[in-house]
Amino acid sequence: MTAEYVGLGGWTPDALAVPGEVRPVVVAPDPVLSRPGPEVDPTSDEVVRLAADLVATMRISPGCVGLAAPQVGVSAQVFAVDVTGHPKAATVHGTFVLCNAKVVEASRWKAGREGCMSVPDLTGDVKRAGRLVVEAVLPGTGEPVRLVTDAFEARALQHEIDHCAGLLFLDRVASAHAVYQRKVYL
Rank of each mutant, 00 (worst) to 15 (best):
M1R: 12
T2L: 12
T2Q: 09
A3K: 11
L8P: 02
G10Q: 14
W11A: 09
L16D: 00
L16H: 01
P19F: 12
E21Y: 07
V22W: 11
P24V: 08
V25P: 06
V25D: 02
V27I: 14
A28R: 12
A28M: 09
P29R: 04
P31F: 04
V32W: 01
L33C: 04
S34M: 07
S34I: 09
R35Q: 14
P36Q: 03
V40T: 13
D41L: 13
P42H: 11
T43K: 15
D45E: 15
V47H: 01
V47K: 10
V47L: 08
V48T: 15
V48E: 11
V48H: 10
R49Y: 08
R49M: 14
L50K: 13
A52N: 03
A52P: 04
D53A: 05
L54Y: 09
V55L: 12
A56P: 03
A56T: 05
M58G: 07
R59F: 04
I60P: 00
I60M: 11
S61V: 04
V65W: 01
G73K: 08
V74C: 02
S75D: 06
F79H: 07
F79R: 02
D82R: 01
D82P: 01
D82H: 03
G85S: 07
G85E: 02
H86F: 10
P87Y: 11
K88Y: 14
K88R: 15
T91V: 14
T91S: 15
V92W: 07
V92Q: 13
G94R: 02
F96V: 11
V97M: 07
A101S: 06
W109C: 07
K110L: 14
K110M: 15
A111M: 10
A111Q: 11
G112E: 09
E114R: 00
E114F: 01
C116E: 00
P120R: 08
D121V: 05
T123S: 08
G124A: 08
G124W: 03
G124N: 12
V126C: 03
V126K: 04
K127N: 12
R128P: 01
V134F: 08
G140Y: 02
G140N: 00
G140C: 03
G140F: 06
G142T: 07
P144L: 10
A151Q: 13
A151K: 12
F152Y: 08
F152H: 06
Q158L: 07
I161N: 05
D162I: 02
H163G: 06
H163A: 09
L168K: 06
D171T: 09
D171R: 04
A174P: 00
S175W: 05
A176M: 13
H177T: 14
Q181M: 11
K183M: 09
V184H: 12
V184M: 10
V184N: 08
L186D: 15
